[in-house]
Amino acid sequence: MNPTITAATARRVLTQLRHDPRTVAMLLLVPSLLMSLLRFVFNDERAFNHLAPALLGVFPFVVMFLVASVTTLRERTTATLERLMTLPLGRLDLILGYAIAFGLVAVAQVGVATGVCAWLGLDLGGSLWTVLLIAVLDALLGMALGLLVSAFATSEFQAIQFMPLFVLPQFLLCGLLQPREQMSQVLHWLSDVMPLSYAVDALGRATASADMDAALLTDILVVAGCVLLALALGAGTLRRRTR
């Protein structure tokens, strides 16, 4: 691993995005737009306050999953990945370069969405920074999973379809639609192994009270651990030598 190469890779990914202003606009505004829509669907501050914190994590998670899986798939299917694998670039340089670039985008995306939510009347208690941290972790989780699953897609059609396959089950089981305790044993067990469940739990706890308690810290650590695990597995899917 080489910090100069990692930084150059992050800069390159951000430069690529800069040449695509429409994608940047969508990355920054779509979660905020969805949150605004949600506010008017409920037309009730209490219901909005109940759901919004969790969705503040879920929307960036979904968006980043899609963007990351398509971007890295493009790198794999055009010859650029093969070229990079013949150069003095470590696999972690590439993965971390992507993580840093998309992490910065996630910070901006979540920052805008949180600001819009506050303006729409979301009461974040005293824990704005904790909520921001968790939401950025959620976005990074989406990015890391997107990077990872792109290894199993051979076309962009497949990559796009991994979204409903990997993301929607996590959304259904994360406790947003039905409290996890009320699910059947099997579903509860499934939701226990899905990282988004911990992210949504953490956001619920962080908005319910301003204190950082052990349960909240555990949730955050689980999500962060999943991000690192997915990034490591993603690096493992990059092969220097192929058949």
């Binding site: 190469i5 390159r12 430069t15 040449h19 695509d20 055009t78 650029t80 070229r83 150069l87 003095p88």
Partner: peptide, 19 residues
Amino acid sequence: AVYADLTVAECLRYFAAVL
């Protein structure tokens, strides 16, 4: 093997940095 969404110079600068 070049990035379509970079300028020629940006693309070369990236690979020069890697090398």
